[in-house]
Design a protein around this nucleic acid. Sequence first.
DNA 1: CGATATTTTGAGCGGAGTCAACTCTGGTGG
DNA 2: CCACCAGAGTTGACTCCGCTCAAAATATCG
Lengths: 213, 213
Amino acid sequence: MQALAQSHAFQPVPASHIHANNILNGPGALTTYSADEEIYGQGERAGTLYEVRYGAVRLYRLLSDGRRQVVAFHFAGETFGFEAEGVHSFFAEAIVETGLRKVVTHTNNNINPEMLALALRGMVRAQQHLLVVGRQCATEKLGAFLLDLAARQGDPDRIDLPMTRLDIGDYLGMTIETVSRSISKLKAAGILKLHSLRSVEILKVEKLRQICE
Amino acid sequence: MQALAQSHAFQPVPASHIHANNILNGPGALTTYSADEEIYGQGERAGTLYEVRYGAVRLYRLLSDGRRQVVAFHFAGETFGFEAEGVHSFFAEAIVETGLRKVVTHTNNNINPEMLALALRGMVRAQQHLLVVGRQCATEKLGAFLLDLAARQGDPDRIDLPMTRLDIGDYLGMTIETVSRSISKLKAAGILKLHSLRSVEILKVEKLRQICE
DNA sequence: CGATATTTTGAGCGGAGTCAACTCTGGTGG
DNA sequence: CCACCAGAGTTGACTCCGCTCAAAATATCG
C-alpha cells in the first residue's frame, strides 16, 4: 500500500503500483483506479476524455520549486481530460477508488457537439475556482469551496471530502494548517459539524453563504 | 495575427464619448468601443462571440461586498464571450479604444468546429491564471503575469500595459499598493525597466523566469 | 497651467505562513 | 481485544508579507 506517501514529496508516479483494471477496451468500458493511482501524466499525449462513474479525481500541476497546484477535483458524473494542445498539461490521479468511462469525442471525423458544452462547463468551473482563490480571507475560501462541493454532490448540507487537507490546501492556495484552522473556526461558530474527518455537515447554510457570498 | 498594432493605440480616448460604432451589422462587422465602455453585462443574454481586432478587453465579476475579480484580459487576435449557460456571468469592458469583430458560431444549426478549439483555449487560459493567482508571493504573481502578457503580445521583452494598476490588482488578487511595490522591487533588482507607466521592458527575462518559473 | 486621477512610497497592524509539539484515526499484529 | 504505530490532522508560538490608512509624487486632462 503506497497510501499517501506523496504528502511532502510530490513524486508523480510511485514505482510499483497496481495498474488500472480495464475491464473492457474502448468507449463505454469501465476502468477502475485505486487510491492515488495516476490516470495520466503531465506531458502525455492527450485525446481521450474521461467521465467519472464513481470516486473522485484530482488534476494538478507540479511547479519547479516543489509546490503543487491542484486545479480541479472531479466527482461522479463529471467529465475531464480536455486539452487545447495535444498534450496533457496536468496530472490526473484518483483520490479514492474510482471508476472511469472513456468518452467518445469523435464520430467518423465529426466532433461530437456535446464536447463543446462539456468544454464550456470546464471553463466556467475554472473561472469559478478563480473567484474562490481570488478571495482574500482563508475562511471565505474554505466556505466557498464547501458550498461548491455541496452543490456538485447534490446534498445541500452533507459533504463528502475524499481529498486530504493537503489536497484542499493546494487547491485553495493555502497551507494545511490554515485549512485546519479555518475548519475549526467554522466549527466553533456552529456553522459546521464534522461527523468524521471526511464527512462534513453544514449546519447553517445561510450563514455560511453570507460569509462566502 | 497582425501583432502589436495596438502598441501605441493607448492614446487618451476623445472625451466626447462616442458610443460603440458598428460600421456594418452582422458577422465580420467591426464594432469599436471607447475606453471603459461596456461590451456586455453580467446577466445579459449570451450567444455572440467577439474577436479582438485591436485594443484590449477585461472580463470581470462584481462580488457582493464590492470587490471585483477580473477573470481575464483579452488582446488582439483573441476570442471571448463563451458561456456555458445562455447568460453572461461576467462583465466585458473595453480597456482602451478597441475594435471587435463578431464571430460566426453556427452555420445552419451546426456548431463551427473551431469553436471547440477556442473554448478549450479559454479553459486552459483560466487554468493558467489559476496557477498564477495560486502562487504565494506577490512579486511572483506579478512576474508571472508579465511573462504571460509578453508571450501573448508577441514581443518577448517589451510589454504594453493598457490596464490600470487596479485592474492588475483585481486580476491577481492583490491591492494596487502591492502591485506597485512589486513593480518597484523588480525595477530595483534591475529586472524591469519602465519606459512609461504603461510600457514595461523586461531586461532580464531569464532571471524573471527563474523567480516565476 | 491648474485640477484631478493615478501611482508610488511610508508606517503600522493583522492574518497567513513557518516551525514545532501534540492529538486523533485507522490499521496491524501480538 | 488491545497495544502499538504511522500518517493525518489540530493547535500553539512566532515571524513576516501584504493589507490598511495616509501622504507625497507623478501623470493626465480640461
